[in-house]
Design a protein around this nucleic acid. Structure first.
Lengths: 331, 331
DNA sequence: CTGAAAGCGCTAACAA
DNA sequence: TTGTTAGCGCTTTCAG
């Protein structure tokens, strides 16, 4: 059954000799249709290979059972695994996902958002890298995946300050005294918070937190690699690297290895996220674990709640606490 | 500007005192609207925070500028990177992506597909793990990401037989004689083809190809790990493992390490895909590289071509050749 | 150049 | 339980 124009509810009404609202009811599984008619309709419908048109349905019902997900980058396992979790969770609640990737570009982010809103998604989950208020004009619930200062949005995030502080304290505890912070983007809110947490903890321990070297980058393996190589080239004095994420840490390890520096003896490497690959026996990266599963599930359930019950007067704000994972890349 | 009900083309027509079809024209950038009216309309439109309703637009235009992407699993970097590539490529042509993940489940796959078709996507890119013909009833172009025997669909795939053969020949060349094939799903077409390619090459070299041990799994790290552990436990004789993908290989390496077996001296480990993490200095996995970039770009451009010019009478079939990447996990 | 009107496929009152 | 009807927000003839 391959017609150039697809079969509609009217076609099947005609073919079954029944009014077309009855067909709609039957197909929707609503009450108020006699058993025989319903049976006949169903039969005809799938003989014809009928497929409901979600555009039309969404237009009238004013809901699409679709949620928009905006992420910076699918290339980082942290995000692709998060996407998978959110995806599964959403599906289990009967929602579909439209995924958008921004490449951490500000304009892109705004575009994605307005595109999603145009597509009439019922809600949005958004990991933004720069605070912006295009979101403010959204007419549907939005859950941010980071600490948002706006009074209008709920968020669920992992406390970046706490993560940064945990890293600092551990590093101090292991005897490191000359850290550099590597590889985050200047525009990233989360990264800024991690730096602050790190510096504050460092200062509280009695060391000057403010003159810790911060090398920015773009969260990639390359920026870990080149950043580290640059540090080495400039003969900067440092004994450990607090990386913006695990990918950056992988790059740092690589650069260090190329210069025959030993980890952790010569320099300690500390990651962030605890991606799958950080756990491999060959890697054994010391890092901060972000509770991916909880974060994803919470975001979805909060969002769906708001979609179905309306957004609360004051936003829901959840901060999960990340966990130190000690492995082998620090003394 | 936060109205509970979103502003429509009619609202802005009223507010500008112009008929609402003119507004539509102006907003579409169509000709036949005077400069002044156009300017006024634009101004009013964005004062009101107007957002076109894609559902309505799609309904009448019968196209959504959206393509559906169905992938088995976002957790494997191979697929998440492919997704990213397809995503970028599609966007650069003005198309959006709706992503669906099937978990390699047959029913799921069919659901996803019909859902996408219901959503009126303009075309579909599909990596299937079991040949099925729900696809046949699609009323839009479909590009499969694997060798499809159906005469109705175009595909772009990476030659799995060739990959399997290259692996076999390399392993033979390095002196391995007792391979086991590990970790693929029984239902996977690609995996079956790789096995065939491997066995055939093995046989052609004068060794019995048919009695090579094949341990199935589900393409995960765990199945690599447990599969290998099982092999060891059963004291099966083997000197190398041809893994269903790099993730499985990572699992195999781990299991081998736990039993203090040396790689590559005691057993060689061979992957498939060449994911980013296979290249790390700590891993150095010998593997077969799938040309991700070409595959993604080709799939998108073929699909868009078919969307815009119609599907060709006879399907386009492209097989890319994968490349052997020699690193350190085989002698 | 502009407006009126039809209709995309569907749901949801409302009558019958 | 049924059928009729009025839209959802938009594009697109078709007259003026």
């Amino acid at each position: 059954m391959k017609s150039s124009d697809s079969v509609t509810i009217k076609d099947i009404a005609k073919k079954a000799g029944i009014s077309y609202s009855s067909v709609s009811r039957a197909l929707a599984g609503a009450k108020g249709v006699s058993k025989e008619k319903r049976a006949k309709i169903m039969r005809v419908a799938d003989e014809c290979g009928y497929r409901p048109n979600m555009l039309a349905r969404g237009l009238v019902k004013r809901q699409t059972k679709t949620i928009g997900l905006v992420l910076p980058d699918l290339t980082n396992p942290f995000f692709s695994e998060l996407a998978q979790i959110i995806f599964d969770e959403a599906r289990s609640h009967g929602y579909n996902i439209i995924l958008d990737v921004t490449g951490r570009d500000f304009e892109q982010e705004k575009n994605c958002l307005s595109l999603l809103l145009s597509s009439q998604v019922d809600g949005v989950i958004l990991k933004s890298y720069k605070p912006h208020f295009g979101v403010e004009s959204a007419s549907v619930p939005v859950i941010m995946l980071e600490k948002a200062d706006s009074p209008n949005f709920s968020y669920v995030d992992v406390s970046d300050e706490s993560g940064g502080a945990k890293a600092a304290n551990y590093l101090l505890d292991r005897g490191y005294r000359h850290p550099v912070i590597l590889g985050g983007k200047t525009t990233s809110v989360s990264h800024r918070l991690r730096i602050e947490g790190f510096q504050r903890a460092w200062a509280q321990a009695g060391y000057p937190g403010s003159d810790i070297t911060v090398e920015f980058g773009d969260f990639t393996l390359e920026s870990g690699q080149e950043g580290t190589a640059g540090l080495l080239r400039r003969k900067l004095r440092f004994d450990c690297i607090f990386c913006a994420n695990d990918i950056v840490a992988l790059g740092a390890l690589q650069a260090l290895g190329e210069k025959d520096l030993r980890v952790p003896e010569d320099v300690g490497v500390f990651g962030f996220d605890d991606i799958t690959y950080a756990r491999l026996p060959q890697i054994q990266l010391t890092t901060i674990r972000q509770p991916l599963q909880e974060m994803g599930e919470l975001a979805v359930s909060m969002l769906i709640r708001q979609i179905e019950k309306g957004v609360p007067a004051s936003p829901v704000r959840v901060s999960l606490d990340p966990e130190l994972v000690v492995r082998k890349t620090c003394k």
